[in-house]
Design a protein around this nucleic acid. Structure first.
Lengths: 129, 129
DNA sequence: TTGACTATTGACAAATTGCACATAGTGTGG
DNA sequence: CCACACTATGTGCAATTTGTCAATAGTCAA
C-alpha cells in the first residue's frame, strides 16, 4: 500500500513536521506575541509549511492548557473575525530551553546513525550480505 | 496532567526512539543477518535501549511486509525456542539510503531551529516580551 | 446576496504506540 | 517430575496521536 515512493516519504515528512511544531511555535512566540494565523504562516520558515491549520490551532490550545502560553482576544478589529493573541509564559520559556536540549540529543542520535552508515559504506563498499 | 518533568521528557524520548527504529534496524541488518532478539539488544548502541520488545518485533514484521527485509527460521537449535533470522533485501538497501536523506533533512531542520534560538538569545539576552 | 478571504474551532476517522499477556523451548535446582 | 528462570516471538486491545472535513463567523467587494 505504500510500496516506497510517495507513501514512505509523506509518512516521514509529515510526522517529522509535527514533532517540530511545538518548539517552532515556542520559538516564534519567544520573539513576541502573535496570532495563531500569523504563526501558521511563519512556520514555513522552519520547513513546516503546508500543515493543516487545525493541527496548529490544536497544538496552540494544548500548549495553553499546559501553561506554556496564554491567549486573549485581540481587541482591534481588522478584516475578519476576532483573533487570538498568544504570548509566551515564563514556563513556556523554560520548556523552550528544555526542547533545545531535546533537539540537541536528537541531533546526536542522527549524527551517530549517519556516522555509522557512512563508515560502514566506506569499509564495505556498500555491499550488504 | 503532564505538568512538565517526567511526562514531558518521557513523551519526547519515547516517540523520538520509535521514529529512529526503522533506520536503526535497517542499518544493523546492513551489517548482516540477525535475529530479532539480537537486534533488540543492539539497539542500545543507537540510544534506543529499553524499548518494549513487542514494538521492535512488530516493526520488523512490518518491514518484512514492505519487502525491506525477509525472514526465515533459524535451523540450528540453541537454548530457547526457534528464532527468526532477518536479512536485508535490495529494496531495504535502497530504503536505508532514502532514510539517510531524510535524516539529513531532519538534521537540517534541527540546526535551523537551534541556530535561530541561539541567535535570538544572544541578541535579546534571553528576554521574552 | 453571493463569493472570496481571514480566523478559529469541533467532531470523528484513521493511524500509531504502549502494554499486558500468551506461547514455547531449554536449562537448572530441589 | 515440578517449579522457575531465561530466551524468543507473537497477539490483542486500550490509549494516544494525527489527519481531515466541515462548521462558524466576521469583513470586504462586486
Amino acid at each position: 500500500m505504500r510500496g516506497r515512493g510517495r507513501g514512505w516519504r509523506w509518512r516521514g515528512c509529515s510526522r517529522r513536521a509535527v514533532r517540530f511544531l511545538e518548539p517552532s511555535l515556542l520559538l516564534l512566540l519567544h520573539h513576541g506575541p502573535a496570532h495563531g494565523y500569523t504563526l501558521l504562516e511563519r512556520l514555513g520558515e522552519f520547513g513546516l509549511g503546508g500543515l493543516n491549520p487545525s493541527v496548529v490551532y490544536r497544538v496552540l490550545r494544548e500548549m495553553e492548557s499546559e501553561g506554556w502560553v496564554v491567549s486573549s482576544w485581540d481587541e482591534e478589529r481588522t478584516k475578519g473575525p476576532p483573533r487570538r493573541v498568544y504570548r509566551l509564559t515564563a514556563l513556556g520559556d523554560e520548556v523552550l530551553a528544555l526542547w533545545t536540549q531535546d533537539l540537541k540529543e536528537t541531533r546526536g542520535l542522527i549524527d551517530h546513525l549517519l556516522g555509522a552508515y557512512h563508515r560502514h559504506m566506506e569499509e564495505g563498499k556498500g555491499e550488504h550480505h
